[in-house]
């Protein structure tokens, strides 16, 4: 257990030293406030600079708080996921490629600790950033649009965090499989695209598919209750995350430089 703490501390220190603890939360906060603010001021901006006729401006539909919160989520599913992939693609692969992992793995440590310390650090790091960003998004949504209750906000965070944790786990898994960062990033993006296509085609038959989580969260916000499909999606993702982690432990030991 002490070794796990040592490995975690090292990851933590690394995130401090390369300033990730500063710029990632700030980026996530910017992503969170971007939509409530631009959506609110869009009519004003158009009026000021757009030079459109009166009628057009009135046709912009009024947004509900839930709509705006969902807009923020969709930004996280683009930019948030991209940042996660870029910052996680080398967590193990880069150490292997450079050879620094040789000095660590030759010490009597368990590879499970090694992988888990990396995974857990990234999870805490990105979920904290995500919660911070969503706090800002929630605040501006309540300020500028109609209000979202704490419990609605909380469930949104909980369910969507699981999707982000799934992305982290996927990238960590590919880290144990490939030694080149670019390959890890490419294969991760490819996997997410394929999953998204599968979701697009089969979303009627498999509403619990991980990629469908945003749509299910939107339903929850609109209807005010958590659907069975959302709970199924929740447990499906937990199952996928656990299996991917377990798989990482074996693929890591098999993969040789």
């Amino acid at each position: 257990m002490n070794q796990f703490k040592t490995l975690m501390n090292k990851e933590w220190l690394e995130h401090w030293r390369n300033f990730s603890w500063i710029w990632v939360p700030i980026t996530f906060i910017l992503i969170g406030i971007m939509d409530p603010i631009t959506t609110y001021y869009l009519p004003v901006l158009l009026e000021e600079f757009g030079g459109f006729e009166e009628e057009i401006i009135f046709e912009i539909p009024a947004m509900s708080g839930a709509d705006v919160l969902m807009m923020s989520l969709s930004e996280y599913s683009m930019f948030g996921v991209l940042i996660i992939i870029l910052l996680t693609m080398g967590t193990i692969a880069a150490e292997r490629q450079s050879g620094v992992s040789d000095l660590i793995l030759v010490k009597p440590i368990s590879t499970v600790y090694y992988i888990l310390s990396k995974w857990l650090t990234k999870v805490i790091f990105f979920i904290t950033s995500f919660i911070l960003g969503m706090l800002f998004s929630w605040y501006y949504t309540n300020l500028l649009f109609d209000s979202i209750s704490f419990s609605e906000w909380f469930w949104t965070i909980l369910f969507y965090s699981l999707w982000l944790i799934f992305v982290i786990t996927l990238v960590v898994f590919y880290n144990t499989l490939f030694n080149k960062q670019a390959v890890v990033a490419g294969v991760s993006v490819l996997t997410l695209i394929i999953m998204s296509i599968i979701n697009g085609v089969f979303s009627n038959r498999m509403p619990w598919f991980p990629n469908n989580i945003s749509a299910l969260i939107a339903d929850m916000l609109n209807e005010g209750q958590i659907s069975t499909d959302l709970w199924i999606a929740f447990f499906v993702m937990i199952a996928i995350i656990s299996s991917l982690l377990l798989l990482s432990f074996t693929t890591f030991s098999k993969n040789e430089k």
Partner: peptide
């Protein structure tokens, strides 16, 4: 190793303490 590589952002002291604790 033939070409030992370290975490460049650590100090020599930090790295030794780090691997020492791993051992």
């Amino acid at each position: 190793p033939q070409h030992p590589v370290f975490h460049g952002w650590m100090t020599g002291m930090e790295f030794l303490v780090f691997v020492g604790k791993l051992a």
